[in-house]
Computed example of a mutant assay.
Amino acid sequence: MQIVTSWMEEGIERGIERGIEREKNFILRLINRKFGQIDLGLETKIRSLNIEIMEVLGEEIFDLDTVEDLQSWLENV
């Protein structure tokens, strides 16, 4: 029974991680669509955000006009 439980927990954790990665990829696609391809350093910084901040960024995208605005927003997080 213990083995089954640990497999289930591992499966749940993997599912959560995949969901978070999908959400980050989606927000990065939105950013790239709005601003064009961003540089790797900026993408890495965005990927390092925790999921709560990433969700806020997903909403803030509509208020950001330039890549510089995005960089400024990230510096103030």
Rank of each mutant, 00 (worst) to 15 (best):
S48R: 12
G11K: 11
T44M: 14
V4Q: 14
R47T: 05
D39G: 04
G11Y: 05
I38D: 03
D39T: 01
G41C: 02
Q71V: 13
E68F: 09
I16D: 10
E68L: 12
R22W: 06
L49T: 06
V4N: 15
E59Y: 06
E9F: 09
M8C: 08
G58W: 02
S48V: 01
T5N: 15
E75Q: 15
V4E: 15
N25G: 04
E21M: 06
T66L: 04
D63S: 11
V67Q: 11
L57N: 09
S72H: 12
R33P: 02
V67Y: 03
R18Q: 15
E17Y: 00
E60W: 02
K24R: 15
R18E: 12
L74M: 04
M8L: 09
V77S: 06
N32F: 03
F26P: 00
I12F: 10
I61L: 15
W73I: 03
S72D: 15
E75R: 14
R47G: 09
D63I: 03
V56A: 10
G15F: 06
N50V: 05
L42A: 09
Q37Y: 12
K24M: 00
Q71G: 01
E23A: 07
I3A: 07
L49Y: 06
V56I: 13
T5A: 13
S72C: 02
I27A: 01
E13L: 09
G58M: 02
K45G: 12
W73L: 07
Q71K: 13
L28N: 03
I53Y: 06
I31W: 04
L57R: 03
T5S: 14
E10M: 10
T5R: 15
N76K: 10
M8W: 14
L57M: 08
D63G: 09
V4H: 07
R29E: 13
E75P: 00
